Simulated assay, not measured.
Amino acid sequence: MAYLDHRPATPAEALDELLAGNERFVTGTRIHPHQDAEHRAVVAAAQRPFAVVFGCSDSRLAAEIIFDRGLGDLFVVRTAGHIVGPEVTASIEYGVVVLGAPLVVVLGHDSCGAIQATRAALDGSRLPGRNLGAIVERVTPSIATADARQVTDDAGISAIHTQHTVETITRPDTELADAVAAGRCDVVGMFYRLADGRVTVTVSGAAPTGS
């Protein structure tokens, strides 16, 4: 059960582990940890992931691959455009409060279809489908902020949307905000570039909403 005893225990250690894994992915030196039959047997009885990764559902954004991790390492939650609803909030809090993950990552990326669809809906070039309105509704505040700041580049808009997501999941009435305030975990935002596979930290630490 060594796996359960030697996982990253602090937010800083967890972040370092993720960034190191991404560097291996980018440079082609992946080690594919925790993907063997022996480890599969170890984690069958219990899981203690060292990070919750909340990212977009984009098929090119598989967290275990881009961070070079394996079974039991990451508790992954994904929605289109990493939009937040009650089930998402509960899932993230489960990873932190129940499973004890010391880090939550909100993972955005370039060429995000949810952001593109929202911009198209707002300028009238394309209306959302009957069931896509929820995506447009929840991404619109990020587009509005970007417009107000005159931010038009892909990375800048994604960074703003990631910041909004961090603020949403750490609003004062959440257990995640309590965990952050108590120092049990931290929340960071990241931006992933599809072409080169590299992640960069765009939001360092969760600031209370309105601060």
Rank of each mutant, 00 (worst) to 15 (best):
S57Q: 13
S57T: 14
S57P: 05
D58L: 07
D58Y: 02
D58A: 05
D58V: 07
S59P: 01
S59G: 06
S59D: 14
R60I: 12
R60G: 13
R60S: 14
L61F: 00
L61A: 13
A62M: 03
A62V: 13
A63T: 04
A63K: 05
A63P: 10
A63M: 07
E64L: 08
E64T: 14
E64N: 15
E64W: 13
E64P: 04
I65W: 00
I65D: 13
I65V: 15
I65Y: 05
I66M: 14
I66Q: 09
I66N: 01
F67H: 05
F67A: 04
F67Q: 04
D68L: 03
D68Q: 00
R69I: 05
G70Q: 11
G70P: 10
G70F: 14
G72F: 09
G72P: 04
G72L: 10
D73L: 07
D73N: 07
L74W: 08
L74R: 03
F75K: 01
F75P: 04
V76E: 08
V76C: 02
R78L: 05
R78S: 12
R78N: 07
T79G: 07
T79K: 00
T79I: 02
A80Q: 10
A80H: 12
G81S: 12
G81R: 11
G81Q: 11
G81Y: 12
H82L: 05
H82F: 15
I83H: 07
I83W: 10
V84P: 05
V84Y: 02
G85Q: 10
G85I: 11
G85Y: 15
P86G: 01
P86H: 08
P86I: 02
P86D: 14
P86F: 07
P86T: 13
E87L: 09
E87F: 14
E87M: 13
V88W: 06
A90F: 10
S91V: 07
I92G: 00
I92K: 03
E93I: 03
E93C: 02
Y94F: 15
Y94T: 09
Y94R: 01
G95D: 02
G95P: 02
V96R: 03
V96F: 03
V97Y: 06
V98W: 00
L99S: 06
L99Y: 11
G100E: 00
G100D: 04
G100T: 06
A101T: 01
P102H: 13
P102N: 09
L103A: 03
L103Q: 01
V104H: 03
V104K: 04
V104P: 08
V105Q: 04
V106R: 08
V106Y: 10
V106S: 10
V106W: 05
L107I: 06
L107A: 15
G108H: 06
G108Y: 13
G108L: 12
G108E: 08
H109P: 05
H109I: 09
H109V: 02
H109S: 08
H109D: 07
D110E: 13
D110F: 10
D110A: 00
S111A: 15
S111N: 15
C112M: 13
